[in-house]
Write a protein that binds this DNA or RNA. Sequence first.
DNA 1: AACACGGTCAACCGCTAGTGT
DNA 2: CACACTAGCGGTTGACCGTGT
Length: 335
Amino acid sequence: MGRAPCCDKANVKKGPWSPEEDEKLKAYIDKYGTGNNWIALPQKIGLKRCGKSCRLRWLNYLRPNIKHGGFSEEEDNIICSLYISIGSRWSIIAAQLPGRTDNDIKNYWNTRLKKKLLGRRKNSNINRLSTSHDPKDANGIEEKSCSPILSDSALERLQLHMQLQNPNLCFYNNISMWPKLLPLQEKMVSSTNPLMQISPPSTQLGQGQKVGIYEQISNLNLDNFLESSVLGNLNNGRNLLDSNIVPRLDGMEQSNEGIQTFPGEIDVGFQPVQEDSIAEFDCFKEIDGSKGNLIWWSNDQLDSKSVSSNSWDSTSLLQSKVIYDDYVQGYSLEC
DNA sequence: AACACGGTCAACCGCTAGTGT
DNA sequence: CACACTAGCGGTTGACCGTGT
């Protein structure tokens, strides 16, 4: 037994809205409001439309102060930042952009922004994938393509991750991009965190360089880092980059919220140690030539209602694992 | 001029969470 | 507690339009 339809589809008009329909809907809502019942609304007005359709039309088009098109560079950066951080939570992203609808942002991302950001990177990534794995096996027999089968979303975010890893742009590899830690913070971080005492061979210091928290992070799993930053942000209500952070590398299983443990991987989590200390964080400038800042968002900057109402926590955990698996699958030497 | 193709965007669809009974 | 119903969300579709051939 299927679900009952929300409306009588036989008597419901579909397709583009006429100006008359718009006027009816707008006039009614202006006068009476939605009455918190979209299903009943079209009958009251005398519109042969589904309630859902009315709602969508109002929210995406008729609502006051709606902006269409003409996204500013600042808006671009906000969308990019949030997409990298939280993925396709369009409603959350839209909540940060007054006058923009989730539908608008979704369309804008899918049709323009994604291409703008990924387009230039695409070729180099393809090259990397094709050259990093010999298409022929030891016997010279051409293998079936081992190109990673990534979900679109995972691929996009992976590519953006890689974009952030660009040696010329990435803050992991570019010390000048590292956020400035307050002296006290740096001291706290280095004195309390075992990670800071671990200096892998790859982190030999060059002149004028320092090994700090961010370089240590760079030796860890990138996805863990990014996903943990998001999880730390939303699950704990604290922002990795707003607060000070302490990556954890203690080899112990962690079950705390916001701490992810992937099989066979170093356990990486982040603990805020000083919430009122805000590190400067402008390291994502000029990604793909953009002059603006990419912004990492703290929980209080996000609409916590929409976040929580979206069951974000559980899905993000799953999603991050999927992305992580995709990443491993895609770039595994076994491939 | 006619056609093909690709980009854009409004609208629809199906699913899920929340709420009321 | 179970069920029904609704709002809201993200993915997808299809019409429209501009551009290239």
